[in-house]
Amino acid sequence: MFKAELSNPNILKTSFEAISAIVDEIQFQTDSEGLRLDALDRGHITFLHLDLKASLFDEYICDEPEKINIDTDEFMKVLKRSKSDDRVLLSLDEGNLIITFEGQAKRTFKIRLIDMEYEPATPPAIEYPTEFSIPFDLFKNSINDIDIYSDKVSLSVDSEKFKAFATGEFGEVNIEFIHGESVKEEASSVFSLEKISEMLKADKFSDNVTLSIGNDMPLTLSLKMISEEGELRFLLAPRIEN
């Protein structure tokens, strides 16, 4: 039996704004610890991991592990119909994920479970020279600034500053932010702006974003709830010199 209840739909909604922009299908894996998913996009450019711990839910029952395969667009269409103060219940029957919104009315939606084309990837462990946190809004604004000039961004960090830089045909933009964190090495890599923007669609998950950057290494971008009961993490392959 699987049953999970949330006091509002916002974490699921904001997570799937990003997830549905990146992958077509996902497999939720549930057990007594909580609900998680790992997914890799078709081009193998972005990997994502969502972890929602059992304690995040108002009620959580999972007496045996389940694998729930769904189409992300179909799930997002349903989540978009939620109101921000609706209670959300997730459960299963033979062949369906059942999503119930309880507010002024009780609304029950069923989404057919699908066969997955691919087994979900296991999250890779990457050793990074740097890790630091910056405000989510600052990062999102930087990406919007960069968008004036280019479709790619150079992200770098040193002991003092986080920097975002882009150059284009008509000019360039340089953003600097004193991060106030303990970063001992310098690192810099270039990333697709479009791919970063997809991740930042999860704009209500966390006030801060934790970034790990290396030299020509993937970007790790992690959104964590203050309570540490939920994390949405992405890995993005860099653009590199040919």
Partner: peptide
């Protein structure tokens, strides 16, 4: 001169 890499090397 520059291209999008993939994550394949990390799995």
């Amino acid at each position: 001169k520059e291209k999008q890499s993939s994550l394949d090397a990390f799995f």
